[in-house]
Nucleic acid binder design. Structure first.
Lengths: 199, 199
DNA sequence: AAATAAGGAATGAACATTCATTCATTTTTA
DNA sequence: TAAAAATGAATGAATGTTCATTCCTTATTT
């Protein structure tokens, strides 16, 4: 029986191996070994190597989307919502280094043309940030002169770069709580001491 | 004659090919063809494929560092300095898509262990941001509760993600000037409408 | 003429994918 | 109910291709 169980086992193994070696240096045989499965078995569950990466990516991001949506639905204050998003993302990346790495890989390795074609879950994820910002603008909490489409990328990019470093230096210089606070502060109030300076 | 000229020609070709195909899909023969040079010739100038990527990366970032330092030395106001850095980086990435792409590749593909070991020019580049922030804090222009080591990554990461999108969609949704202004605004004053909310 | 640079064909290792075969499980037959 | 047949998941060795790198040859420089 072609079990969903085995599918999962392979996904988990692939995540681990992709994260450790990167997509191109990951061998199918590595993944097979990690999943305790024969090389050929993998092709009963996935079309090819790239299909695996995409599956891993979509599944993991999908989880993130559900998780964050769950956390946000109780909240009304856009300011708090943004904080929750930031804290959740950073904690998740810190906890799950493999996930952070796979995001980095999928977003930047492999073929550009195929790339954003199937990344729907990822767009969905980023758009949560944009939605929060628009909500805040409607409620008059956030500045109206911020473009949500740019802000969402700035915020995600900032966190992604921070997570990238976590995956290089195992010893994080800063505590996770401090990092969260910093990111929240930077995006909420900026680096400026006084406000009159903005144009 | 083993000319510096040929070295440059190869670097330029490599940048182009790496940017177009990514490191792993770039063939030495592609680079050789692009540089109008024989495959073997490349090995007179570089030890191996990865050495080429690293050379390309270091050289390009080195240029960026010089360029931005030149622009900053006339400036005293940290606020303006940060603006200059942001504008310069974004314009450079927009103008030179290959450079943006190579940064993405080198930072995330290839081997993690070797990775940050030789990335000195890149650290130098990021530290310019940190220096600006510290200067601003000394001068009382920037908030003292911002950690420069985190802010520099947030700012770079934000711009890098924006540049990533430029390399995927050829049609940028926003004008470059608007994007610059947005990034500056987000980092200087944040998204919040009122200030009393920060902790 | 010697030394150095460049050329590019040849090499061989690496690796994704395939596919003939096995074998445990389920279904059918008697 | 037991034996026989069918199924299809799993295996992993074999295949064939794809390059990075080498190294012998040719061209150029001094």
């Amino acid at each position: 029986m072609k079990s969903a169980d085995k599918h999962n086992k392979i996904i988990r193994a692939a995540t681990k191996v992709f994260a450790k070696k990167g997509f191109f240096n990951a061998r199918i045989s590595d993944i097979a070994k990690e999943a305790k499965v024969a090389d050929g078995t993998i092709y009963l569950y996935f079309n090819n190597k790239y299909d695996m990466l995409l599956s891993v990516f979509e599944e993991k991001i999908g989880r993130l989307v559900e998780q964050i949506n769950g956390q946000l639905e109780k909240e009304e204050d856009p300011r708090r919502m943004l904080e929750i998003f930031i804290v959740n993302h950073l904690r998740e990346m810190k906890k799950n280094k493999n996930l952070a790495e796979v995001i980095q890989i999928e977003l930047r390795q492999t073929n550009k043309i195929i790339r954003d074609f199937r990344n729907n879950k990822f767009s969905e994820y980023l758009n949560i940030i944009a939605t929060i910002i628009m909500l805040g603008q409607e409620k008059g909490v956030f500045r109206k002169d911020i473009l949500p489409g740019i802000a969402k990328r700035a915020i995600f990019g900032a966190m992604d770069e921070i997570a990238r470093i976590w995956n290089i230096n195992m010893d994080s210089k800063y505590k996770i709580e401090d990092t969260e606070l910093q990111v929240i502060r930077i995006f909420l109030v900026g680096v400026l001491q006084n406000r009159e300076t903005s144009q």
